[in-house]
Amino acid sequence: MIWDLHCHLSGVAGQTPGERIARLLDYADRMGVERLCFFMGMQWSTDPTPDDFRRENDEVLEAISGHPNRCYGFVYLNPKHEQESLDELERCIANGPMVGVKLWTAERCSEQSLDALVRRAGELKALIYQHTWLKVGGNLAGESTPTDIAILAARHPEVSLVCGHTGGDWERGIRAVRNSPNVSVGIGGSDPTAGMVEMAVRELGAERVIYGSDIGGRSFASQLGKVYGAEIRPTDRTQILGGNLKRLLTPIFRDKGYAL
């Protein structure tokens, strides 16, 4: 069972979200990926206006609409626009089909401006995916690090958070979130550098490590290769490939009546 936490409507030809997701699912079929979470639209904005994130979310809603019980949406928000983001949470999750939240680089996630969004997402049992990186040349101004998400997690210990990309520099990223039990690491969207998954399992436990690809910029192959190539127990591999994501999404799936 492979569930992919981290997919985008990119990397393939297609004039519409529906055309793109159909092509992406051809590849998913070849690789045995059963369920996929999508976020952000066909053109991305790093600091989206409310109109931007509504448009991107509409595209995801359109894409997943033809693939119930296989493709799911995470709502893209910008904490700089708090009320509009709260409204979008209601539209896409409370009153819509989406099951998670995607936060990118508009604002560092340790800022208190995220608190209302995170509280409401928690009430809705939505999973929050926060992009993080630790770039040796310096992050973007609003780009979060794993330390930022650890700070956020401490303020919201009841909410499930994902540290996206494991911070990129995973040897530091894993350490930064080790003491944050409500934070899992998303291993997608970085080079398939050997040792990453082994260290994550050793330091966090397999139950806090989640497979995702970051298609279409990345391949299923390079990201699945991290899990298949890691020297870990078969039961750990099963958890990472899908068991953990299924567990984290089970509460909201039950609320929405989605098949598990």
Partner: peptide
């Protein structure tokens, strides 16, 4: 690029593309 990369990452690329 093993052992820096997981070997399977390249191997699976031959499967992903038809």
């Amino acid at each position: 690029f093993s052992p820096f990369f997981y070997f399977e990452a390249a191997e699976l690329k031959l499967r992903e593309s038809p």
